[in-house]
């Protein structure tokens, strides 16, 4: 029924997972905001490819839809918006790390190791899961948040958030071979809406007090 054998799918997904991890490392290591945006766009592209592969393998038409939406929204629309915002705001292009990028990378490695260790401890369930999709998904999600936790500017944080969401999408596709379509669409809509609200806030703060919204720290204790 499917043109691809399960083993082949596993291999492809594993390879894609490795590529995703690579893009993630690029995001972590990115010293300039543009690189981070391009990396996240590339990551989204890889995920839509993964969606397409899985759609071919399982014959599930929903996955095609999802792959398409991901491509449109996360690989093209959102990076473009971010790009525009960076241009319009005319901010410094460097990402401002909280801790040295090398330390962040080390933490990212730790996250990857733990993710694999964690899924290795699952035992029998792994049979039901496509290849290394689960540890890769966990690693992507956590590393995305790690990026948010170690960057000082609002836009890099948004990049980290999208990377994190990518991890979830990848897991949803690879592990469950697609969630119910309506849910996926709802999730994407929410993401778009959240991105919209965040962008408005960033611009608003930039226009009123000329500061980065993520750099505000008057509320404390």
């Amino acid at each position: 029924m499917s043109p691809l054998s399960p083993d082949a799918v596993h291999t492809v997904i594993d390879d894609l997972g490795a590529l995703l991890l690579f893009t993630m490392i690029l995001i972590v290591a990115a010293g300039q905001i543009y690189r981070a945006i391009y990396s996240v766009a590339a990551q989204s592209l890889l995920i839509s490819i993964a969606g397409a592969v899985l759609a071919t393998a399982t014959g599930n038409p929903d996955l095609w839809v999802i792959a398409g939406i991901t491509l449109a929204v996360k690989a093209i629309l959102l990076p473009w918006v971010l790009h525009r915002v960076v241009q319009r705001m005319n901010v410094r292009r460097e990402v401002e790390p909280v801790i040295p990028i090398a330390a962040t990378l080390a933490l990212a490695v730790a996250i990857v190791v733990v993710s694999f260790q964690l899924s290795a401890s699952l035992g029998p369930v792994r049979q039901a899961i496509t290849g290394n999709a689960l540890p890769v998904g966990i690693a992507l999600t956590l590393t995305g948040v790690l990026v948010m936790a170690t960057r000082k500017t609002a836009l890099t944080q948004m990049v980290g958030l999208f990377a994190s969401e990518n991890g979830i999408f990848f897991t949803a596709m690879a592990v469950t071979q697609g969630m119910p379509l309506i849910i996926e669409i709802g999730v994407i809509l929410d993401v778009i809406l959240a991105a919209l609200v965040m962008t408005i806030m960033v611009l608003r703060v930039r226009s009123t007090v000329d500061a980065d919204i993520a750099d505000l720290d008057r509320l404390r204790g």
């Binding site: 958030l161 806030m201 960033v202 993520a214 008057r218 509320l219």
Partner: peptide, 17 residues
Amino acid sequence: HHHGLEAAWKYIIVTTI
């Protein structure tokens, strides 16, 4: 005011994560 926006930003980012 920017206090409100700061709170909103923290709120939306952290809870979205």
